[in-house]
Amino acid sequence: MELQITNSTLNDIETIFKFYKFATDFQKAKSMVSWPEFDRRLIEQEIEEERQWKLISDRDIACVWATTFDDPEIWEERNDDSAVYIHRIATNPDFRGRNLVNHIVNWAIGHAAVNNKNFVRLDTVGENRGLIDHYTKCGFDFLGLKKLHNTTGLPAHYDNATVSLFEIRL
């Protein structure tokens, strides 16, 4: 299985939203905090800014995610650190269980290095032990839980939320 990571394009937007729907349905089935319906303009902006990514296996999109270099509402004072932040990893159900997060992590470490960043970070809403274990197995340090204070501008699932924070120091 040959894997390639590249920027998503506007032609991928329907697939991105389909993967978000798969992820949301999975979250609901597991009684987890589920993602809201994301604003199409947000995804279009991420694509235009080359911050929306896809992992391709042969000719199929296996998963998608977004990145940013700034995440003050979640990371607050730690946002001053130079970091790549990963958001909304959504996997094609045909590719679940193939450890794709490991590929994303390896790519993100390289992406951070090329962009002179010192950390790769991500968060997840709530205290999901399965995701905590999964992300630590992928190389992240679990930093603990943090109650969010100012969620203005964040998607709805962050309202009044506690998040699990993860990072890899480079």
Rank of each mutant, 00 (worst) to 15 (best):
Ile89Leu: 14
Val114Thr: 13
Thr67Leu: 09
Asp159Lys: 14
Pro155Val: 03
Val125Ile: 15
Leu122Ser: 04
Gln52His: 13
Ala113Met: 11
Ala108Asp: 07
Gln45Phe: 06
Lys30His: 10
Leu143Ser: 07
Ile86Gln: 05
Pro93Ala: 04
Glu37Phe: 07
Trp35Glu: 09
Ser8Asp: 01
Leu154Ala: 01
Ile13Asp: 00
Gln27Leu: 10
Ala23Thr: 10
Ala156Trp: 00
Arg88His: 13
Arg129Phe: 08
Gly110Ala: 10
Asn102Trp: 00
Glu37Trp: 02
Arg59Met: 12
Asn115Lys: 13
Glu44Arg: 11
Leu148Cys: 08
Pro72Ser: 06
Thr136Asn: 01
Asn150Met: 01
Ile132Gln: 07
Lys117Val: 04
Ile74Glu: 07
Phe26Glu: 13
Glu48Asn: 14
Ile61Tyr: 03
Arg98Glu: 12
Trp53Gln: 11
Glu2Ala: 06
Ala108Val: 11
Trp35Gly: 04
Leu100Asp: 02
Thr124Arg: 08
Thr91Met: 07
Ala112Pro: 01
Glu44Trp: 11
Glu73Lys: 15
Asn116Asp: 15
Ile168Phe: 03
Ser34Lys: 10
Val101Lys: 03
Lys137Val: 02
Glu14Val: 02
Thr151Ser: 10
Thr6Tyr: 01
Glu73Ala: 14
Asn115Tyr: 12
Arg78Asn: 14
Leu131Glu: 07
Pro36Gln: 14
Ala62His: 05
Lys18Thr: 11
Glu73His: 15
Glu73Trp: 04
His111Ala: 10
Lys117Asn: 12
Gln4Ile: 12
Tyr85Ser: 03
Ser82Trp: 04
Glu46Cys: 13
Ala83Ser: 15
Glu46Tyr: 12
Trp35Lys: 05
Leu42Thr: 13
Gln4Cys: 10
Arg59Gly: 08
Val105Cys: 08
Arg59Ile: 10
His87Ile: 08
Ile104Asp: 03
Val33Ala: 13
Gly97Thr: 07
His87Thr: 10
Val101Tyr: 07
Phe38Leu: 15
Pro72Cys: 06
Thr68Gln: 13
Gln27Trp: 03
Thr68Leu: 06
Asn11Cys: 04
Thr91Ser: 14
His134Met: 15
Ile109Trp: 00
Asp70Lys: 11
Pro155Asn: 03
Leu42Tyr: 09
Pro155His: 04
Lys28Trp: 00
Ile74Ala: 02
Leu131Pro: 08
Arg88Gly: 05
Ala62Trp: 00
Gly153Lys: 07
Pro36Tyr: 06
